[in-house]
Nucleic acid binder design. Structure first.
Lengths: 146, 146
DNA sequence: TTGGGTGCAAACTATTTGCATTCGA
DNA sequence: TCGAATGCAAATAGTTTGCACCCAA
């Protein structure tokens, strides 16, 4: 946490955890993938592809826009991160994959977690024929009080 | 319903209802706004801007892409339709504004209503400080059974 | 060596905007 | 008439793709 990996180069606990995480999900560890994973998993957070790109390039290891997009898509497919679709203009990548929902401030664009205990669904609806459940997203849209 | 207004030009029940609807929301009735409203409110449905554009141009009255986007945005702001954000690639406009939620088939892109009675939230979470509730969206993502 | 990963730039798509023209009260 | 609405095209933004190059196994 708190930016250890921003200051110290080379192997340390966080780096090792990241390597293990990639390995667990069958993702070949490359420099940029490790770098992107380190940014995402430094703490639970919501980042857009653009924000990830910005942070990648602050550090030594550089990744192109295409690589960032490809990597985030890969991580999402492999289940390391969750895509959060709340804004038609951009996708957020959530490094917290445990069950939870979101507040989205439509004025500021701020995305915040809602603990899953605070919000419980009563009665899963009958699914249409021929489909299976993928996930359930609950978005509580809020606006800044004037 | 069933295309009455596609065949008969001039005033009829549906046209009058559309005129009244626009007036109620303080929207100046122009030809293209009436046309777009007629398409949307022919029945409860989910249409993307592109689909609306396609349908507009099948009929006599034409509207440009910009006008369709502007009009849909206007309708959403004025509360005639609800924007449904489930796909990062496009916004759907839902002509059903009563409380309900959605199934979204991530394979086919099909959006279907879930009756609000079938899915009840237990416990509204405490809102963060300084914000007020706008709306709550529940999206049940499903995929086609292989 | 050799296939997957990366970088770059170009392509693409949905949406927005600027501005001149046209419409409707 | 006169301001609002429209149409067109160009601009924008996020994301994807094609292809040559490079690196790690």
């Amino acid at each position: 946490m708190q930016g250890i990996t921003d200051k110290i180069e080379g192997p340390n606990q966080h780096t090792q955890a990241v390597n293990a995480l990639l390995a667990q999900h069958g993702i070949a560890p490359t420099q940029q993938r490790r770098q992107i994973a380190q940014i995402l998993f430094a703490r639970p957070q919501h980042l857009s592809a653009d924000q990830v790109l910005g942070r990648v390039n602050q550090n030594g290891i550089v990744a192109s826009k295409a690589t960032v997009y490809n990597t985030l898509g890969l991580f999402a497919r492999k289940g390391l991160v969750r895509e959060v679709i709340v804004d038609p203009n951009k996708v957020f990548y959530d490094s917290n994959i445990s069950a939870h929902h979101h507040f989205y401030n439509i004025d500021t664009g701020l995305l915040q977690d809602i603990d899953s205990q605070e919000l419980v669904l009563q009665g899963l609806p009958t699914l249409p024929a021929g489909v299976e459940l993928d996930s359930i997203d609950i978005i509580v849209r809020v606006r800044t009080t004037k």
